[in-house]
Computed example of a mutant assay.
Amino acid sequence: MADTMQFDLVAPERNLLSVPVREVRLPGEDGDLTAMPGHAPAIVNLRPGLVTVIDDKGTESEFAISGGFAEINGESVSLLAEIGRKREDMDQDAFDEMMRAALRKKKAAEQREEQQGAAAGVVAAAAKLLADMEALGAHIGLDPNSANFPD
């Protein structure tokens, strides 16, 4: 078994990282997980949180994501993030952008429920997304209540 695997982190605005890695820690929707070379194939839905990458030299780096999914195949991990930023680039403005996106999803789910009688699980999932986003901000020292987000 190889000591490393390829890791690619892509967000809509740009390719954030493409390197050989020893491990990747992911904020899975059903719980956190670590992917290492030889990991069983999986597709994982991601919640807002920090992705931690340990490269082939042992250097650790972190990325804040607002959600997305990762494809793991044992030889590589490909992560497509809805919104992604290097941890050191996360400031209050970037976090506010991520919070606004989470709020829009929650409002859209509530409107669908109101207009079409969508399942309550959709609204609950959107509310959880918003709570996970708030937890991410608190974890990295940003204030989820700093901006006046629309109701």
Rank of each mutant, 00 (worst) to 15 (best):
A127P: 03
K128S: 14
D132A: 13
A108H: 11
V122H: 09
A94C: 02
A124Y: 13
R100S: 04
K106F: 00
L129R: 05
A102P: 04
L129D: 04
A131N: 10
V123I: 01
L129I: 01
E134A: 15
D93P: 02
R100Y: 13
E97T: 12
V122Q: 08
A124R: 14
K128V: 09
A135R: 14
A101C: 07
M90K: 03
K107H: 14
A125L: 02
D132V: 04
M98V: 10
E134L: 08
F95N: 05
D91G: 08
A120G: 05
M99C: 00
F95K: 00
Q111L: 15
Q116P: 06
V123A: 07
M98Q: 02
V122D: 02
Q92E: 13
A120M: 06
G117I: 04
K107T: 13
A102L: 01
A101M: 13
L130W: 09
D132S: 11
D91F: 01
L103Q: 07
K107D: 13
Q115A: 11
G121V: 01
A135D: 10
Q111Y: 11
L130S: 04
D93S: 13
G117S: 03
L130Q: 11
M98I: 10
M90N: 03
R100D: 02
A118Y: 12
A119K: 09
Q115G: 05
A118L: 09
Q92T: 08
A119P: 08
V122N: 06
E113A: 15
L129Y: 00
V122G: 01
K107I: 07
Q115M: 02
A102T: 00
Q92M: 05
A126T: 06
D96Y: 00
A101I: 10
G121T: 09
A108C: 03
M90D: 00
R100M: 03
K128Q: 15
M133L: 03
Q116I: 05
A131M: 10
A127L: 05
D132G: 04
M90A: 00
G117V: 07
A135L: 06
E110K: 04
M99G: 05
M98D: 07
M98A: 06
Q92L: 05
Q116D: 14
R100T: 14
R104K: 14
Q111T: 15
L103P: 00
R112P: 11
D91E: 01
A101R: 15
A94W: 09
V122M: 09
K128C: 07
K107G: 08
K128I: 09
A94M: 12
D93E: 15
A108Q: 10
M133D: 07
A119M: 02
Q92Y: 10
K128W: 06
E97N: 01
A135Y: 05
A101L: 15
V123Q: 07
D93W: 01
Q111F: 02
L103K: 06
Q111P: 06
A109F: 03
A108Y: 10
E114Y: 15
